[in-house]
Deep mutational scan, measured.
Amino acid sequence: VCKIPGCTKRYTDPSSLRKHVKTVH
């Protein structure tokens, strides 16, 4: 789960989560 408040994205792959946080937030 993305830890950013208001963001409901969920990832099973830690690298995908990291990429999401870097690119989306």
Rank of each mutant, 00 (worst) to 15 (best):
V1K: 03
V1D: 12
V1C: 08
V1T: 06
V1Q: 04
V1F: 05
V1E: 10
C2Y: 06
C2D: 11
C2V: 03
C2A: 01
C2I: 04
C2R: 00
C2M: 04
K3C: 09
K3Q: 11
K3E: 14
K3V: 09
K3S: 13
K3A: 04
K3F: 11
K3P: 07
K3G: 08
K3D: 14
K3R: 05
K3W: 09
I4V: 10
I4S: 07
I4R: 00
I4G: 03
I4Q: 09
I4F: 12
I4N: 10
I4A: 02
I4L: 06
I4M: 10
I4C: 05
P5I: 05
P5Y: 03
P5A: 09
P5K: 08
P5G: 11
P5R: 03
P5D: 09
P5T: 10
G6P: 01
G6H: 00
G6Q: 01
G6L: 00
G6S: 01
G6E: 09
G6K: 01
G6A: 02
C7D: 05
C7E: 08
C7V: 01
C7Y: 01
C7A: 02
C7F: 00
C7H: 04
C7M: 02
T8E: 13
T8R: 05
T8Y: 07
T8Q: 11
T8K: 07
T8P: 07
T8C: 10
K9P: 01
K9V: 11
K9L: 09
K9Y: 13
K9T: 12
K9I: 06
K9R: 06
K9C: 06
K9A: 13
K9Q: 13
K9E: 14
K9F: 15
K9N: 10
R10P: 06
R10E: 15
R10H: 10
R10F: 06
R10M: 11
R10C: 10
R10T: 15
R10A: 14
R10K: 12
R10D: 09
R10Y: 04
Y11H: 10
Y11D: 13
Y11M: 09
Y11Q: 09
Y11L: 08
Y11C: 14
Y11T: 11
Y11F: 13
Y11R: 03
Y11I: 08
T12F: 03
T12H: 08
T12Q: 13
T12I: 08
T12L: 04
T12W: 00
T12M: 06
T12Y: 02
T12K: 14
D13R: 02
D13F: 02
D13Y: 02
D13A: 05
D13S: 08
D13H: 06
D13G: 01
D13I: 00
D13L: 01
D13E: 12
D13M: 01
D13P: 01
P14E: 15
P14V: 10
P14W: 04
P14T: 11
P14N: 13
S15T: 11
S15V: 10
S15E: 15
S15I: 08
S15Q: 06
S15Y: 03
S15M: 13
S15N: 15
S15L: 11
S16M: 12
S16W: 02
S16Q: 13
S16C: 09
S16K: 13
S16A: 14
S16Y: 06
S16V: 11
S16G: 07
S16F: 06
S16H: 11
L17F: 04
L17Q: 09
L17M: 11
L17A: 06
L17V: 05
L17G: 05
L17C: 03
R18S: 15
R18Q: 15
R18A: 15
R18P: 09
R18N: 12
R18L: 14
R18E: 15
R18W: 09
R18H: 13
R18Y: 09
K19H: 15
K19C: 14
K19Q: 11
K19W: 10
K19Y: 13
K19E: 15
K19N: 11
K19L: 12
K19S: 13
K19D: 14
K19T: 14
K19A: 14
H20I: 00
H20G: 05
H20E: 09
H20F: 00
H20P: 02
H20Y: 00
H20Q: 05
H20M: 03
H20C: 03
H20R: 00
V21T: 05
V21Y: 02
V21H: 04
V21S: 04
V21Q: 14
V21N: 06
V21C: 03
V21R: 02
V21I: 04
K22E: 15
K22F: 12
K22W: 12
K22I: 07
K22H: 06
K22Y: 14
K22V: 13
K22L: 14
T23F: 04
T23L: 09
T23R: 05
T23E: 15
T23A: 13
T23K: 01
T23M: 07
T23Q: 09
T23I: 11
T23H: 12
T23C: 05
T23P: 03
V24L: 04
V24K: 05
V24Q: 12
V24F: 09
V24H: 11
V24R: 07
V24Y: 07
V24C: 12
V24T: 12
V24D: 15
V24M: 09
H25P: 07
H25Y: 00
H25T: 04
H25G: 04
H25Q: 04
H25N: 02
H25R: 01
H25E: 07
H25L: 01
H25A: 03
